[in-house]
Amino acid sequence: MATVTKLKTKAGQVRYKARVRITGYPVVNKTFPRKTDAHAWAAKVEKQILDGTYFEHQERRRNTVDALIDRYLGTVLPDKKPSTQRDQVRQLAWWKREIGKTTLDRLRPALIAEKRDELAKDRSGSTVNRYLAALSHVCTVASSEWHLLEDNPVRKVRKRPEPRGRVRFLDDRERTALLEQTAASPNPYLHTIVTLALSTGMRHGEVMNLTWHNVDLSRRVIVLGDTKNGERRAVPLIGEALDRLKDLRQAPRIDTDLLFPSYKDSRKPMDIRGAWGKALEDAGIEDFVFHDLRHTAASYLAMHGATTSEIAAVLGHKTLAMVARYSHLSEQHTVGVLERMNASVFGDERKT
C-alpha cells in the first residue's frame, strides 16, 4: 500500500514523504514539497509495481548501452560462428564508442537514426544496415530475454537503401579462356578449385576449407556443415568437378584432411590469390573476383531454366530475395519456352 507522511526539515520547511510498501517487493520512497505530488507519485509507482514495470524501468535508468553490449558479447556472441563474431565485435565496438554512455531509458529511435546517418557518410547502405542489424539483435535479446528494454528501438529505424546485387558472370569465351589458364597454372590445385566453384556455386571459404570428411565420392555429394547461414547443406558432385575430386583422391596428403592445404602449414587452406590473379590476367578477364564464380554458376542455372527456388536451394540461400538478381536471365529462358509452346499449339500460321 502507499502512504504519505508530513515531515519538517531542520530549516522549518514542510515536505511530504511518499512510501510504497507492497509485500514481496522492496519499499520505495520519495520526498516532495507538495502533498498532491506525493500522492500522485505514490499511486503511479504502486500501479507500476503491481504491473511489474517499475523495477524494470529503474534497471533501464541504471544500465547503459555499454553494459548491455558487454553482456551480449560475453553471453550471446560466443555461440555464433567465428566469422560472425569478428564482424559483430567490430560493429558493436563502434556503437559503444558512439552511444555507450547512454542509459537504456534514453535509448530512442531518434538517437539511433542520427548515428545511422553519420555511418552513411562514409559507408555503403549495405554496411550501415549490417551495423544496425548488430545493434538490433542486442536490443532484441535485451527486450525478450533480459527485460532491460520494453521494446527494440532499432525496429523503428529505417534501413538505408542497398544497391542491387552484383551480377558478373563469365561469357563462353571468358569461361573457356579461364579454364585453359587454370589448367596450365603451376598451382596444382587451382584448376580443381575453380572447376568445383563453377560447377557447384560454393563460396570461396566453403571450397577452400573442404576436408575429405565432407566429401562422399560414392554418393557424389559434398556435405557442408558450417555454411554462412549456419545450416547444413548437401552439394551434388557432377561431371568435371566429380572427376577432378576423384583424381585428387588418388594421391591425398597424409599430413592433413584438407583437400587444398597450404604448402607452409598443412593445417590451413592454401592461399590461391597469386595463382588466381595470374590466371585471370593471362585469360584477359577484367572486373572479376572469385565470388563471381558463384554468380556465374547461378546465372548458368537461370539460363538453363532453373527456377529461383531451385537456384536458392543450390546456393544455400534461406530466402528467394538473394536470387532475385538472376530473374532477368530466367525470364529470357521463359520467353523461349513460351515461343516453343505457342509454335506447337498454334502452328506456323501465327508467325508474322
Rank of each mutant, 00 (worst) to 15 (best):
residue 166 R to M: 07
residue 322 M to R: 03
residue 152 N to P: 00
residue 224 L to A: 02
residue 253 R to C: 09
residue 176 T to I: 10
residue 250 Q to W: 10
residue 71 R to K: 12
residue 15 R to V: 12
residue 1 M to I: 08
residue 126 S to Y: 12
residue 285 I to R: 03
residue 127 T to D: 10
residue 196 L to H: 00
residue 121 K to T: 12
residue 346 F to H: 07
residue 236 P to V: 06
residue 129 N to D: 08
residue 292 D to Y: 03
residue 61 R to V: 13
residue 111 L to G: 02
residue 231 E to C: 09
residue 90 R to V: 11
residue 319 T to I: 09
residue 245 L to M: 09
residue 211 T to A: 07
residue 61 R to D: 07
residue 28 V to W: 00
residue 236 P to M: 07
residue 244 R to W: 09
residue 252 P to L: 08
residue 71 R to H: 11
residue 250 Q to M: 13
residue 179 L to N: 05
residue 169 F to K: 01
residue 216 D to A: 12
residue 202 M to T: 04
residue 261 P to I: 04
residue 10 K to V: 13
residue 2 A to G: 07
residue 217 L to C: 04
residue 69 I to Q: 00
residue 347 G to M: 10
residue 42 A to S: 11
residue 290 F to G: 00
residue 165 G to A: 12
residue 99 I to H: 03
residue 69 I to A: 01
residue 86 R to W: 11
residue 81 K to D: 11
residue 195 T to E: 03
residue 304 H to L: 06
residue 257 D to Y: 05
residue 72 Y to H: 10
residue 11 A to Y: 15
residue 256 T to E: 12
residue 324 A to M: 13
residue 290 F to A: 00
residue 117 D to M: 08
residue 15 R to G: 03
residue 208 M to P: 01
residue 335 V to C: 11
residue 200 T to E: 06
residue 302 A to L: 03
residue 141 V to R: 07
residue 3 T to Q: 11
residue 195 T to D: 02
residue 154 V to P: 00
residue 57 H to K: 15
residue 338 L to M: 15
residue 60 R to P: 02
residue 202 M to A: 09
residue 340 R to N: 12
residue 293 L to R: 01
residue 86 R to T: 13
residue 72 Y to L: 04
residue 225 G to V: 10
residue 122 D to F: 12
residue 335 V to D: 15
residue 34 R to D: 11
residue 59 E to R: 13
residue 254 I to S: 15
residue 246 K to G: 13
residue 266 S to T: 13
residue 285 I to M: 08
residue 185 S to Q: 02
residue 42 A to D: 05
residue 237 L to A: 06
residue 52 G to Q: 05
residue 140 T to E: 10
residue 35 K to C: 09
residue 351 K to C: 09
residue 9 T to G: 03
residue 52 G to C: 09
residue 67 A to L: 13
residue 214 N to L: 03
residue 205 G to H: 11
residue 278 K to H: 14
residue 62 R to Y: 06
residue 161 P to C: 10
residue 300 Y to D: 10
residue 296 T to E: 09
residue 297 A to E: 04
residue 292 D to V: 02
residue 286 E to G: 06
